[in-house]
Design a protein around this nucleic acid. Structure first.
Length: 562
DNA sequence: CGGGTTCGCGCC
DNA sequence: AAAGGGCGCGAACCCG
C-alpha cells in the first residue's frame, strides 16, 4: 500500500487517474486510469488511509463528496505556506504557477476567487483550467513533480518537523472546510422567521420594502429631531439632522450616539441595530444562504494571513448572537459546542515560556489567576492589560497596567515587544509552526529610512506594522493550535462512527467548534473534544505547563451554549 | 450603469 | 487623541 497517492479527476465525468508515491514523492508505479474515481479512492482509503496528493481540495475533493478521506496534501495551500516562509509572499500559488516556477516557464497570475453565491456555475470552479496549467501539460505529471519539489523545500525550512505538522494541519483544514460546506450548519428557517418578525415585524410582501417596525422607527426618529424625512442609513443626512438640533457628531457610530442625552440618539441606536439585522441576516439572507434547513457558506482555509479561516458569502464567521436561536440540532441529534477559553493569552504564555504567566495559565480562569498575583484581584484590569499588551494598545488608562505586567511577567512582555520591534524595523515573524507574516509593503510606507528621518507618517506606519507583528505571533500560533485541534477532532469523530449517522463538524470559528451528533454519541464527542485539545497542545507547544481548556456544552440550540 | 471606496457594524 | 490585532458585508457615496 502506497503511503501517498497522487490524484487527478477527469475534466468531465466520474473518472480520474491515480499514481502511487513513496514518502519522498517518487512514483512507485505507473499512473492508473479509473472509471469511478470516488469508488477507487474509497477502496484504497479502506485499505490503508493514504495521504492523497492533489492540486486543491475544491477541484479534487469537493466533487467527490460524500466520499470521506482521512488525509491529504493540498498543493495550493502548501505552496502558499512555503512561498511565505521563503520570502516570496504574494507569488501565485496555483498548480500551474508552481509547475511554471519548477520548469522555468512564465508564471501565470492566480485567477480571482469567485464566490459560490448560492451554488450556480460551480462547474467552472472545478474546471481544470482554473489550475492555470499551460495547455497540453499533463496534470498528473505536474501534481507529482510539484509535490516532490514541495517535500524537498519543506526539508529546508527553519524547523521542518513543526512545518510538516503545519502542512498536515492546513491540508486537514481543507478537507474539513469542504465537508462543512457540504454538510451545512443546521438552520431552522421557522425560528429565524420568528426572531425576525419579533424584532422587525412581519416579512414585507414586497421584497425590498422596509419591515413595519423599522419604518415606524424611522418616522419616530424624524419626529424626535423635528426634521423633514431623511434616510437614516445615510451618514451625511443623519449628521445634518442632528446638527440642525444643535447636536454635533463627528460620526454616526453607536458609541458616540450613546454619549448624547437626547431621545433621538436612543432611537437612532435602535434603528441601527434593527436595520443591520435586516440587511445582513434578514429574509434576503435567508433566501440566499439558508435554504433547505442548512446554512452552507464557503470557507477559505488560510484566508487570513495569520492562518485563520475566512469565509465567502453569507458572513459565516459573523453569525450575530441574537440569531443563534435558529441553529437547532435535528430530531434525535445534539450540538456539541466547544470553545477554547482565553486562547490567545495562553498562547502567549506557552510561546514565551514566561514561568509566572504559565502558572496563571496552568489551570482555571487565567485572568482570575493573573488578577490574584498582580492586580489585587481586579480581573477587569488583568484582562484589559493583557489584551492591550497583545494588541499593542497605547491609549486609555492602561499605561500603569502595562507597567505592572512588565514588572511581573518580563519574559512574556519581552516576547511581544521583541515581535513588535522586529515589525517596526521591517522584519518578518513566524508562528509557532512556521507560518510567516507578509513583509512590509506599500501599506506601511517606506520603513527602510531611519525612524528619525522617516517623518511622522513613517513613524506612525512603522508602529502600525509593529502592532501587526506583535499580534501576528500570537494570533497565528493560536490558529496553529486551532488547526491541530480540528485535525485531531476530525480523526477522533471518524473513529466514533463512519455510518450515515456519524458525528460531524458543522462550524469552526477561530477558537470555537461545533459538532452535530446523534444524541447517544454526544458524551463521546465531548470526550473527543477534550482529547483533541490536549493533543493539539502537545503537538504544537510540546512540553509546557500551560493548559488550553475547552468549555463544552451539549445543547439542542446554539443559543443555549453560553 | 458598474466598479471602487468609505463607513460602520457583526464576529473572534 | 475613542490612535488595539484580524476579518466580511451592505448601504451610501463617488467616479468614469
Amino acid at each position: 500500500m502506497a503511503p501517498r497517492i497522487a490524484v487527478v479527476p477527469a475534466p468531465h465525468g466520474p473518472g480520474g487517474r491515480l499514481q502511487p508515491l513513496g514518502e519522498d514523492g517518487v512514483p512507485l508505479g505507473p499512473p492508473e486510469q479509473v472509471a469511478d474515481l470516488a469508488a477507487a479512492m474509497a477502496q484504497r482509503e479502506a485499505a490503508g488511509r493514504p495521504r492523497w496528493v492533489w492540486a486543491a481540495a475544491d477541484s479534487a475533493y469537493a466533487p467527490l463528496l460524500p466520499l470521506r478521506v482521512a488525509r491529504c496534501h493540498d498543493l495550493r495551500l502548501v505552496e502558499a505556506l512555503l512561498l511565505g516562509h521563503e520570502g516570496a509572499w504574494g507569488e501565485p500559488r496555483s498548480l500551474g504557477a508552481a509547475w511554471a516556477r519548477l520548469r522555468g516557464l512564465p508564471v501565470p497570475a492566480d485567477l480571482p476567487e469567485t464566490g459560490g453565491a448560492g451554488g450556480e456555475e460551480q462547474d467552472s470552479l472545478f474546471a481544470p483550467d482554473r489550475l492555470q496549467l499551460p495547455p497540453g501539460t499533463d496534470q498528473l505529471t505536474a501534481v507529482v513533480a510539484v509535490h516532490a519539489e514541495q517535500l524537498r523545500r519543506i526539508a529546508l525550512v527553519e524547523q521542518p518537523g513543526l512545518f510538516r505538522l503545519l502542512v498536515a494541519a492546513e491540508s486537514a483544514g481543507a478537507l474539513l472546510a469542504t465537508e462543512i460546506t457540504y454538510d451545512g450548519l443546521p438552520w431552522r428557517t421557522d425560528r429565524h422567521d420568528r426572531l425576525l418578525t419579533d424584532l422587525l415585524g412581519p416579512r414585507p410582501h414586497i421584497p425590498g420594502t422596509q419591515p413595519k417596525l423599522l419604518a415606524e422607527l424611522s418616522v419616530e426618529l424624524q419626529q424626535a429631531l423635528g426634521s423633514r424625512p431623511f434616510n437614516p442609513d445615510s451618514h451625511a443626512q443623519v449628521l445634518k439632522a442632528f446638527a440642525d438640533q444643535g447636536i454635533r457628531l463627528s460620526s454616526t457610530r453607536v458609541w458616540e450616539l450613546r454619549e448624547i442625552d437626547h431621545p433621538a440618539a436612543r432611537l437612532m441606536i435602535r434603528y441601527k441595530e434593527l436595520s443591520r439585522i435586516h440587511a445582513a441576516h434578514g429574509w434576503a439572507w435567508q433566501d440566499a444562504w439558508a435554504r433547505g434547513g442548512r446554512f452552507r457558506p464557503e470557507y477559505v482555509v488560510g484566508g487570513v494571513v495569520s492562518g485563520r479561516w475566512a469565509s465567502r458569502g453569507g458572513g459565516a464567521l459573523q453569525i450575530p448572537r441574537i440569531l443563534r436561536g435558529a441553529v437547532v440540532a435535528d430530531p434525535g441529534w445534539a450540538l456539541v459546542v466547544a470553545d477554547a477559553a482565553q486562547l490567545e493569552p495562553r498562547v502567549l504564555a506557552a510561546l514565551s515560556g514566561d514561568a509566572g504567566l504559565a502558572r496563571s495559565a496552568a489551570e482555571g480562569d487565567l485572568y482570575d489567576a493573573l488578577a490574584a498575583s498582580a492586580f489585587q484581584g481586579d480581573r477587569d484590569k488583568a484582562k484589559l492589560g493583557l489584551l492591550g499588551a497583545m494588541y499593542g494598545q497605547t491609549s486609555g488608562d492602561i499605561g500603569p497596567l502595562l507597567a505592572t505586567l512588565r514588572r511581573k511577567y518580563p519574559t512574556a512582555m519581552g516576547y511581544v515587544e521583541a515581535a513588535a520591534r522586529t515589525g517596526e524595523e521591517g522584519g518578518i515573524v513566524r508562528s509557532r509552526l512556521g507560518r510567516t507574516c507578509p513583509p512590509p509593503s506599500a501599506d506601511w510606507l517606506d520603513l527602510t529610512e531611519a525612524p528619525e528621518t522617516a517623518g511622522e507618517a513613517g513613524g506612525r506606519s512603522a508602529r502600525a506594522r509593529g502592532r501587526f507583528t506583535r499580534n501576528f505571533v500570537i494570533q497565528a500560533s493560536g490558529a496553529d493550535w486551532a488547526l491541530a485541534l480540528l485535525a485531531s477532532l476530525r480523526r477522533r469523530l471518524t473513529a466514533l462512527s463512519t455510518g450515515p449517522d456519524r458525528p460531524h463538524l458543522v462550524f469552526f470559528q477561530h477558537d470555537e467548534v461545533m459538532v452535530h451528533t446523534p444524541v447517544n454519541l454526544a458524551d463521546q464527542v465531548v470526550e473527543a473534544v477534550a482529547e483533541a485539545g490536549e493533543e493539539a497542545r502537545r503537538l504544537v507547544f510540546g512540553d509546557t505547563p500551560v493548559r488550553f481548556p475547552l468549555s463544552t456544552a451539549v445543547v439542542d440550540c446554539y443559543a443555549d451554549a453560553k
